[in-house]
Design a binder for these strands. Structure first.
Lengths: 250, 250
DNA sequence: ATAAATCATGCAATATCGTGCAATGTCAAG
DNA sequence: CTTGACATTGCACGATATTGCATGATTTAT
């Protein structure tokens, strides 16, 4: 790779990710960190980026950029939640995964809609107090990181349900490596629900499109729908279309 | 995450939330509190924010608006909660009923105490996120009035536990008619837990001392302790002493 | 007054950085 | 083709930055 190409790549990554980490890029390109650092140093001198400890940030607006990024993130989650809520029909049994994205689904659901909602997240369950919906709470040992019930008890309870839709939330997804999550026990629960879901498994994801956790869940082939933020760009969405995933942009 | 990004995130949170809590941010970003504190200290020195005990505020904080706290529970309930928490020993299995009074028990429990807490209330379970305690969530159909799990699934899960203490909360009590609650299904759950409790059943009650619900639960004879607000007057307490109830005033 | 939470400080481990230097590659003049 | 100037790259090494932990002080809440 030519130096010019490499530096163009750095600018491209800055525009795409909003950051560049020296060590990671060096490993990815199989170069010494010195080379990357020299690039960053020279480009910073040329005003093309802002050098920080550990990498570089865009020169234009590092701080405001983060603000808008985060603000958009919550806005994205609300849009995803509304799109998901529109998939729900009266009388259905819905299973809600944990996480803030699925909390947005609850907020977007009409309070008077007669449905049944199952969840293994006490936080999600608590949000449903004002809803007419029948709520099935899946019990078990609470996994502290994401605060959802896990273990044999949870698996057994899940085995008695046939949800029409399973809203799988806030999990990393990759077109080749598949769905992934950070914890094995949590993954077992997700697999169990997916195995039970009679109709549709729907993944809501905002920004973690290409992320892969260390312990990824392979072999999830029946993922039928994926609700993604609009404006991602066809280049990032296309790989998922090839996996026969029904893409919904929100 | 780069240091610069983290500090930008702090400023963004300050703008969005009007405050930053050091411990919470450290946990969210999976960093030590020292790192966050160093950030806050340096940024305060740079005039980017105002350092306060526990976190930071925007530099342009208009007024010390400390009244944005959540609903403040009554003095009585806090006293009851503290008294109840003092009964808990390390290693025990505690079953917490639903209700705001038992939420105060959670608040009064030391976060580092190694215990196991079972509950059929998702609200109570959610409160335990910051605690070291192992949490067993009892699942089932959520009874909307009090938002606790009920039904056969809940009964089955309860049958597998032998709690050292069951904190029965916010239920009406009467020296003659016994404990009572407003709903049959909820009552069945309470009876089931009481039947399982190996050691002690403790009732926390503040004002409903002589109340009797239409469908009262009779035959609760193994109620060992009752935590009552101090200063009730012996005339109201005396009838309970005759039921061989261990009265604790808080 | 007492317990819990928070804080500041010092210290050690690790990561990152900058500089100097040698090895290699590029290229143009000879 | 050879040679030498120059650029690029990787490595070594000391300097600096960052982070986590331990400890005791301080603040807060009760």
């Amino acid at each position: 790779m030519l130096t010019t190409q490499r530096r163009a790549l750095i600018l491209q990554r800055l525009a795409r990710d909003g950051q560049v980490i020296a060590g990671a890029l060096a490993q990815e390109l199989d170069l010494s960190e010195d080379t990357i650092r020299r690039d960053l140093r020279d480009m910073a001198a040329a005003g093309l980026l802002k050098r920080v400890h550990g990498g570089a940030l865009p020169v234009d607006a590092p701080l405001p950029d983060l603000e808008t990024r985060q603000a958009i993130s919550t806005d994205v989650k609300k849009r995803l939640g509304r799109a998901a809520a529109q998939m729900v029909r009266a009388g259905q049994l819905i299973f809600l995964d944990g996480g803030t994205t699925n909390a947005e689904i609850v907020h977007a659901l009409p309070r008077e809609m007669p449905i049944t909602i199952a969840t293994h997240s006490p936080a999600i369950a608590s949000l449903l107090e004002k809803h007419r919906a029948e709520v099935i709470l899946i019990g078990g040992r609470l996994y502290k990181h994401s605060m959802v019930a896990t273990g044999a008890a949870a698996l057994a309870a899940i085995g008695m349900l046939r949800p029409d839709i399973f809203f799988l939330g806030a999990t990393a997804a990759h077109p080749v490596h598949g769905l992934s999550t950070g914890d094995h026990e949590e993954a077992a629960i997700k697999r169990a629900i997916i195995g039970q879901s009679a109709e549709t498994v729907t993944l809501l994801t905002d920004k973690k499109l290409d992320a892969v956790s260390p312990h990824h869940i392979a072999g999830i082939s029946d993922m039928a729908r994926m609700i993604l933020p609009a404006g991602l760009g066809e280049d990032r969405i296309a790989p998922y279309r090839q996996s026969h995933v029904d893409i919904i942009e929100a």
